[in-house]
Every structure is written in C-alpha cells, then in structure tokens.
Write a protein that binds this DNA or RNA. Sequence first.
DNA 1: TTCGTGTAAGATATCACAAATAACATATCA
DNA 2: TGATATGTTATTTGTGATATCTTACACGAA
Lengths: 253, 253
Amino acid sequence: MSQESAAEFPETSFEKAEIGSARPDMEPASGMPGLGPARQVNLRELVYDQLKDAFMVGYFAPGDYLNLRELADRFETSITPVREAVRRLVAEGALIDAPGRALRVPPLRRAHLIDLRQARIGIESMITEMAVARATPHDLDALGSILDGAVSKNPKTPIDELTSNRKFHFSLYGIGGSPTLFRFVESLWLQYGPFLNLIHYTIDPDIRGSHKDHRRIIAAARDGDALAAKQALVADISRSFDILDAYTQDSAD
Amino acid sequence: MSQESAAEFPETSFEKAEIGSARPDMEPASGMPGLGPARQVNLRELVYDQLKDAFMVGYFAPGDYLNLRELADRFETSITPVREAVRRLVAEGALIDAPGRALRVPPLRRAHLIDLRQARIGIESMITEMAVARATPHDLDALGSILDGAVSKNPKTPIDELTSNRKFHFSLYGIGGSPTLFRFVESLWLQYGPFLNLIHYTIDPDIRGSHKDHRRIIAAARDGDALAAKQALVADISRSFDILDAYTQDSAD
DNA sequence: TTCGTGTAAGATATCACAAATAACATATCA
DNA sequence: TGATATGTTATTTGTGATATCTTACACGAA
C-alpha cells in the first residue's frame, strides 16, 4: 500500500452484503427456503468482503503493494485469513504476484485497460441480453427504484454514486440468471476498481450521463429490445473508460 | 473424494505446463529476455497445477467431496498449500463450499450444465473471433501441427485425446491475446471437467467430429472468416455437451 | 425422540524458515 | 579524492508446518 488515498477502509460492508444477495444462486439456499441464507461467516470471508469493497470503490491504486501482516493488523486477525482472502483476489485478477513474492495491484497499462474494456463490453452485453429476455415487470420496477433511490439520496458522496451504480448493474446482471457470467463480471469490476482511484472520486460530472443510460436500459428492457439495451450499456461502459483516457499514457510502474 | 475413479492422480503435469505457457502475458517477462523466467515454484502452485489437471481430465466426479488432510497426505505437504490451492479452485468455481464446511465438486444439475454451455459458447466465440483477427500464418501452422501430432500419436488413450483437445483450444485462445478472457475460459473448463468423469473416458466415437471442427476453425481463420470459425467452434462445444445429455436427468445429489 | 458426547474436519493462530530487499561498509577505479 | 561497484548484514515478508480451536455430524443412552 504505497500510496493510499485514505486512512481507513471505506465502510460499505452493509451495501455490499445487499448487493451480494443479488447473486443468482445455482444451488438452492442451504438453509430453510424461506429464511435468509444465514450463512456462517468466517474470518476469511469477512476479510475478503472488505477487501473486495475496498477494491470496488477504488481504495487501492494501480501499482500499490499489499502487505499481509499490515492487513492482518488492520483486520485484527492473524495472517491466515488474510492470506486466503488475498489468494482469492489473485485468482480473480484483482491482485498479481509481483517479483520477489510481493503482492501488487496490477499497474496501469494501456493494454490491460483495453482488454478489460472489451471483456466488460462482451460479457456484460451477453448478460444484459439474458436479463432483458428474463426480466419481469416487477424486476424492472425494482431496477427503477434503485435509480430513484440513488437520485433522491441527499448527501451524495462519490462513494454513494459508485455504490448505487454498482447496485444497479449487479441487480440487472442478477436478473440474467447466469451464476457463471455473474462471477466473471464481479471479477471484471474488481479489476477495474483500482482505476477509479486515479480519478480520485472526481467523476460527478459524468454521473448524469450514466443515469440516462441506466434509464434507457430499463426502457429498452420493457420493450423487450435487447439490442437497444445493449447499446445503452455499451455507452455506459465506454464512458467509464473514456474518463481514464487522460491517464492512459502508461505511467511508469 | 467419495467415488474416485482411479487410485492415483493422472500424470499430466508436463503437458499442462506447456499449455499454461500459452497464456498471453500482460506483463513483460521479468527476467532476462533470452533466459528462462526461472520462476520460483512454490508448493501452493504445484498442488494447484496438479489439482487443475485432475479436474480437467475428469478425475473428480460431480458431487465428490474433498478432504484437506487426505490431499495433503497425497501431495506429501502440510495442509497449508493444499488449502490455498483449494481456495483458488473455489474462487474459480471448480469447487464449492458445501454445508458443514465441506468441500465439494458441484453436483450435476441441468441448470448448471446449461449455464456453462452458454457461457462457454459466448466467451469462447468472442475469443475465437479475436484470434481469427490476430492470427498470423505461422500461428495457424502451429495450430495445425497440434492436430497433426494428435492424430499421429499412436497409443491414443482417452486422456491423450483430452489433452490434445485442450492444447488445441487453449493455443487458439492464446492467440486471441486477451488474458482476461483466457482466464475465464480456464475457469469454464475447470468447471466442465468433472462432467467428463461421468462418461468414464468413453468419448472416442465423437473425437472424429471434433477433429473435423478443429480443421474447419483453422481453415476459416486462414480465410479471415470469423463467422465460420465461430460456427465450427459452437458445433464443437455443443458436441461436448450433447454427450452429456443422457446423464442430465438431475441425479439425486 | 431428545439430549449428550465423541470424533472428524475445517478454521485460525503461531512458529520457523527462506528469499528478497535495503542499508551499510569496504574495495576499486578514474 | 570522489564516485561507482561489490560484498556483507539486518530487516522485512511471504511460505510452509504445526498446534489449537470450533463446529458439524453420528452414535448411543435416557
């Protein structure tokens, strides 16, 4: 963690849990069908979830180094759960094994950005098409109310924006009904997260356009127009990456 | 490991290493250009690679339970590296956390099969299209020689077939040049592997058709005909899954 | 049936080790 | 004499092994 932007981890755990529940479960709930999942939380998952949130809101910057003992101190656990959480992040591409056994957030590279963008467009288009095909009117109402809630919320911090943006997208993707693709999208967002750090929470100007795209997606879904929905989605994703264009002159590691 | 099909792990490590090297690296080689990367191999990766191979050739069956201590004994390590390797497999969807802290190969479910199939078709089509756009004549010659080598090899065990099939596909996908999508495909194949166990290495009759599809992909790539390449690919993937149709009456867990 | 108890297995903490890096000191050359 | 190179030591940090803890499940007695 060479260049952290904040002294503390963002406190988005509760939001995250809510988003996580949108994940389409392939397996039936392990507990009683009606009751909540009541999943037993172990330290490993606790640490992972917090790190995941940290990544998604751009807490870490590309190129940052992570330190197991430091993280363990921060989470007040031993390094064992941290190690396992970190290993999972490596598997998901959010971290890489750097030379010298070091753990590093992948540094900014133009090729990486291009790769991520095309993967996001391809996979999220697929899942959006599936969502349009499967969405019930009730689903779309729920999606709309996420947007409504986002605009009504008054103290709109940039993290609030990020969170509600994430909530919209993942709710949409949950409707798609593909746990496999859903997982891949999570991995993509995890990899994209650190780039948010570069723009230091100064994305407000573009949020409006994002909201418009989201509305267009819902409207297209109501018409069953998958193509229009995908076009709006691609516009939304492209905007996210275009903001980064100014930073894309491959910074020296 | 409730119902294992063999007493020992398949010895495909060397094949695997070769395939693994096809992964398109985003980072430049860390060492001297001419010299080998000399990457230090740790136990965690050793165990992971072997487990990965075991999954890919159908050593484990859907629904099997894994046991950390048993695996540690088998690999002659402590449970720590095994644990980390297993955790990675969980992250990749090859294993799931089952009730009671158990580790389980996902049981066969029709919905899962359908999901995997559409994800494979979608993502591998994308990457194939990219490969067709980027492939050099030399690349295509190399691909062709993989097929030639596969047919010439005389003692053709089913595992040989699987290995060369895998080699062809991943070489093709490596040409695509997308590390992100490449990783997703690996995850998909990892999830598909256990289904191979169900058909107990009796896939010979269909291998011929597979070879024909592979030839068609190469030919289409030579013509720059991405659509034709994708059609052949989809036919190939569909065949893989069609073989499983007979087993798809959702076995009781 | 119900409650308790034993056992098995994963989860966590801790210890020991090795590799890598940095800091410092010493040597060599211009 | 000053600057660069090289060797040595100390510290950091990930890795692997082991001990301990907790939980889930099975079995048996009341």
